[in-house]
Simulated scan of single mutants.
Amino acid sequence: MKYSYYPGCSLHTTAKEFDLSTKVVMRELGIELEELQDWSCCGGSIATGVSHDVGMALAARNVVLAQNQNTDLLAACSGCYNKSAKAAKALENEQERDKISSILAAMGISVGDRNIKVRNVVDVLANDLDISSKVRKPLMGLKVACYYGCLLTRPTDITGWDSPVFPMSMDKLAIACGAEVVDFRSKTKCCGGSILIPKEDVALSLTKGLLDEAKSLGADCIVLACPLCSTNLELRQPDIEKKYNVSYSLPVIYITELIGLALGIKPGKLGMDKHLVSTKPILAKLGIILSDLPIFRIQNPVGNIQNTTN
């Protein structure tokens, strides 16, 4: 099975561990990923806020490139997936297609007639593959809270492969890996990522609610598939701890990292040395050797991140 792989901006910058773990896990499971040639930013939510047509065309550009490669488009980031899937659906609408085609024509790109699907990594892992048959090191004793956020399974006319209210795909994947899944009722609540800049207090309060519940359930980590959610839940932990006088030190990892551990892949190859909240407690609980894995301690989340190796 082969896909055009769309990493998006985050997986080449702030979420390199998601990129690394996605590639190595998919390869281990027999999925071939060919990085989308000449891909560009999907525009996220910002571009559409400025211009619906231009924002849609930015995302559609990548869909059209995948059409030219004649393969379905696979996105890891839930935001990139959601925007790309919306663009693919827009191309099926004659009016939307004409607007998008006009904008892309100015870029020298012609919209073709090949029909392709836009898939998310979680969807493929949960619905197309048998993870349990590949598990070499079951994650026994590890308690995880699976967090889906706003965009991974919403809206259903764009996604449709899991419940938009109480999805279970990552939960099932974690269970297949041998982990214990806690009953995380806030799994689709907003983390506040999109309002962090204009309304920081509200965003931190929303994120705090997620961290509080995960901690109260005894979760050893939060598992997700969204770089923006990861930024709020991991990078902003020190801000929340200081503001509310609480303590978490709760690791936040990607679902592909969790699966990679169960497949017996070394933590370093999964990028688990790149986290801002140390993943060592997770690995220690699983009895994995830690000597070559650095700890990242956040002194000041704005500009003074220090890395020390134990």
Rank of each mutant, 00 (worst) to 15 (best):
L73N: 02
K172P: 01
C77G: 07
S249R: 08
K89W: 00
L74I: 11
I103D: 01
L11Y: 02
A47K: 03
R236A: 09
G287N: 10
M56P: 02
A225Q: 09
Q69Y: 01
G43Y: 02
C146A: 15
G49M: 06
A87Q: 00
F166Q: 12
V182G: 11
K285Y: 06
K274T: 07
D292Y: 03
A105S: 14
I195S: 05
S84K: 02
E180K: 07
A219V: 15
S40M: 07
T14G: 02
T308N: 07
S169H: 10
L196D: 00
V63W: 00
T308G: 00
I282Q: 03
N115P: 00
R154S: 12
G178V: 12
P301K: 08
T279E: 02
K16V: 14
K187I: 14
I265K: 06
L210R: 06
V246C: 15
N304Q: 12
T188P: 09
Y244D: 12
T13C: 06
I195E: 03
A88L: 08
P301D: 02
V122G: 05
K143T: 11
R61S: 02
G193Y: 05
P164W: 02
C77K: 04
A284W: 01
N62S: 07
A88M: 05
K199I: 00
V277Q: 05
C77P: 06
L173H: 09
L20H: 03
I46G: 03
R61Q: 05
I288A: 05
I197F: 12
L173M: 13
A76V: 15
G260A: 08
S194N: 10
S110P: 01
I175S: 15
D157C: 11
I259M: 10
A262T: 11
P301E: 01
V121R: 03
P238R: 03
L139P: 07
D201F: 14
I253Q: 07
